[in-house]
Amino acid sequence: MQNIVLVAIIVFFAALEIGSRRHKSFHATADDTKLEAFMFLALIAFSQPFIFAVTGKVCELVMPGQRGAWAELPWWALAAILLVGDDMTQYWWHRVSHTPLMWPLHRAHHTAHYMSIRITYRNNFFYYLMMPGLWISGVLIYLGLGSVYLVYIVVKLTVILGAHSAVRWDEPLYRIKWLHPLAWVLERTVSTPATHWAHHALTNDDGIGHYKGNFGNLLFLWDIVFGTAKITRRYPAHVGLEDDLVYGKERWFVEMFYPLFQSRREQSTLVRSRTITETPIDADPLQPASSRA
């Protein structure tokens, strides 16, 4: 059922992108399409079912009498548990993924030179297998949060697909003055195109890009609470990684299956013996790549 709902939401946003003709500006390569399609299929057909199956079996062994034990809690309590157990941990997982150690597993998400719902699940194969929020969600479903999780995940997917969408649904909120109060609340509560596009920006030098923050998935509130938020109500002119412009893009299977496959590119983080970093930890990785080589 979750996958059916997911496909329906994707079809809705895809129709918006096609109807607005925003998809004409993507200029996606064959490798872009393969990476996005195979990662989406891998997540819904293998990674998530595998994680939920394993957590279910482990929970049966470790706490056999606790199946459904939390099911009678109020819905708002169950929702709060999911927001912390899944969404807040995903915020921290995303934030940690911008460190040199974890960056190779998240880099693929930032190599797209366009914003679209098609890049929402564009990541390394092992990025999702290691995501704490999915494992915690599996345990919570065992404890009785399954029905609430279905509603929660629909809301979450709608928000994160909307945040990546080429159709900037939040733009009228900033343009129409009487909608400004609503915009103020929304942009501090959930991820919007303006805040999330800034995270994907090609550069931080334009005053819009914020590569070191805006990590939230469903709730942008985590960025507010943990001090990583930047709100400009503007959109970067370009997204992606400058290294790809200088050295050429990585092959799709290297981005998806690193470290099983490694890069042959002149400069790359997808080689275990190299120490080049593209992540904004000690220095801004979005400065010209030639100055970091």
Rank of each mutant, 00 (worst) to 15 (best):
S25L: 15
S25V: 04
A28N: 07
D31Q: 10
D31T: 05
T33C: 14
L35N: 09
A37S: 11
A37T: 05
A37Q: 08
A37V: 09
F38R: 09
M39C: 10
M39P: 00
M39F: 01
F40K: 12
L43K: 09
L43V: 12
A45H: 06
F46L: 04
F46P: 00
F46I: 03
F50W: 02
I51M: 06
F52A: 06
T55S: 15
G56D: 15
M63R: 04
P64M: 06
G68A: 10
G68Y: 05
A69L: 07
E72F: 13
E72R: 10
A77S: 07
A77C: 07
L78F: 02
A80C: 14
L83S: 09
L83V: 02
G85C: 01
G85M: 01
D86G: 00
D87Q: 06
D87N: 14
M88H: 07
Q90H: 15
Q90K: 13
W92P: 04
R95Y: 12
R95M: 12
R95C: 07
S97F: 11
H98A: 13
L101Q: 05
L101R: 03
L101W: 13
L101F: 13
W103Y: 09
Y114N: 05
Y114E: 09
M115L: 07
M115D: 02
S116K: 00
S116Q: 01
I117H: 02
I117L: 02
T120R: 06
T120V: 13
R122M: 11
N124M: 07
F125L: 04
Y127P: 05
